[in-house]
Amino acid sequence: MSGVLAVFKRELRSYFATPIAYVFIVIFLIASGLCTFYFLGFYESGQADLQAFFYMHPWLYLFLVPALSMRLWAEERKSGSIELLMTLPLEMWQVVVGKFLAAWVFTGIALALTFPIWITVNYLGKPDNGVVFAAYVGSFLMAGAFLAVGACISAATKNQVIAFILSFITCFMLLAVGVQLVQQVMSAWAPQWLVDGLASLSFQTHFDFISKGVIDLRDIVYFALLIGACLYANAIVLQLKKAD
């Protein structure tokens, strides 16, 4: 565990030693604010809840998380520090988990910094804070899933731009198959079981459930399994292509 902690601490510190952290947090806060107040009519809806705020999260993550995850391994590879990291007396999983956790906690910090909006809604009315809490948990889990997908893809390439684009496309598909509009289009030619099957694999579907305030074990298991599988794949990819 101490190995995970060492990697985790170094990594998290590094975010704040570069402008990445500040740019990411500022853009996340501005974009989530804009979406909520401007495009989705937070005030106009006249309801004291954060539906509009959370509604946009999957789409915000779609752009922002691949920008964060693209550098996870691609940069280590490019600068050669991967050679240093991989010759420390650590198991592969400790390094993979340590790096992932740092990125995840970092997005958690960005998410936590949206607290003024939660205070605002409590000031304006009486929201169901249980639902708000559940949605925050769901949003955090979903960010983890985006990150794990992105980390795995980043491990496969030295080029951050390629890592970004591939992560973006993969995450986009994982989101889109859960969107009703896409499902309707698909059911015109695909059998229903396929449409439902794909939908049940989507971030969107599971996030929708949780953000309505229903913390179902199945949704949590879904995100946990997805993160676990991606990190496992991440370790395998690294093992295979460490030096390329």
Binding site: R10, S14, T87, P89
Partner: peptide, 26 residues
């Protein structure tokens, strides 16, 4: 092990970098 080109983490200071190595090496 000193890898070819002595790679490290450019954004860190020597102190924080070596503290990390000390911790990772237990």
């Amino acid at each position: 092990y000193l890898p070819e080109g002595a790679p490290s983490y450019p954004e860190m200071t020597p102190r924080s970098f070596l503290e990390f190595i000390a911790e990772a090496r237990g």
